[in-house]
């Protein structure tokens, strides 16, 4: 069974929510990892949860990227293990240089918490391989600095390499400016690295895995990830036995 590591930075506050989904709903192995840990080799996948690491007083994610755990995250990423940063986790991945671009203040200059729609742009990742391109997910956002920005060059590369994973859209799947909740360039809601194993997204899939709290479209992301990990586990098993 895949083993998830859930990094807790001082100020993380969606750590328990992610734990609840992975451990209690999907019944996977999952462990909180204090940000001072230096070895994550025991984990198959790492989640950087949302929150306000170090209060986000300097710039979101700017201090957390220096936490000792980030070196280990980088190592696992280079080995191809899936890393998912949600909200503040995305901001940290960007600050750490594991993903391109920057997350700046929402165009409204206000924090915004609401349900939005996102469209799946790339299904060739561990996090989306069970979905179809163009699928819509209804999912909550909650951030003050989720306005994705990158220079023209980076945007071109992101597009060419299919690194844009999710885009904000309306109920019909159109990426209109009205459906863009924070001013993100090209309605970008989530991106991955060129290998596809590091995902950063501003929306919160862990907040929409149960009808009781408003929806369960987020399950698709965890289902994809778990199935991908199970598959690679069995492939590894086959390899060692051949």
């Amino acid at each position: 069974m895949p083993n998830f590591g859930l990094v807790v930075f001082p100020g993380s506050n969606c750590d328990h929510d992610c734990y609840h989904v992975i451990k209690h709903m999907f019944k996977q192995e999952c462990e909180f990892v204090w940000h001072e840990e230096k070895n994550l080799d025991r984990f198959d996948s790492i989640i950087l949860p949302g929150g306000f690491s170090y209060g986000d007083y300097l710039r979101t994610g700017a201090i957390a990227r220096f936490s000792p755990v980030m070196k280990a995250v980088e190592k696992l990423a280079s080995e191809g293990r899936p890393i998912m940063g949600i909200c503040n986790g995305f901001q940290i991945l960007v600050e750490a240089g594991l993903l391109p671009g920057a997350l700046i203040k929402n165009s409204s200059l206000r924090f915004v918490c609401k349900w939005v729609n996102i469209r799946v742009e790339n299904t060739n990742t561990p996090f989306t391989h069970l979905m179809r391109r163009g699928d819509l997910l209804r999912i909550p956002i909650a951030h003050g600095e989720g306005n994705f920005f990158a220079n023209q060059d980076d945007i071109r590369k992101l597009t060419e390499n299919s690194q844009v994973v999710f885009k904000y859209c309306d109920e019909e799947g159109e990426t209109t400016s009205q459906s863009n909740p924070n001013g993100s360039i090209e309605n970008i809601a989530g991106i991955c690295n060129s290998q596809g194993n590091i995902l950063g997204m501003m929306p919160h899939p862990e907040r929409c895995c149960e009808e009781t709290i408003g929806g369960e479209d987020g399950k698709a992301i965890f289902e994809s990830l778990i199935s991908w990990l199970e598959k690679s586990e069995s492939q590894a098993l086959i390899r060692t036995h051949v």
Binding site: N13, C14, F111, C113, P140, A142, E210, I213, G214
Partner: peptide, 27 residues
């Protein structure tokens, strides 16, 4: 106002702001 508040964190909000009362599940 309430969109400026994170009213969903902790994933217990069964009835969000706007109805007669907020309903918060106890996990």
């Amino acid at each position: 106002i309430y969109e400026q508040y994170d009213h969903m964190v902790r994933t217990n909000t069964a009835v969000p702001p706007g109805s007669d009362a907020a309903v918060i599940r106890i996990k």
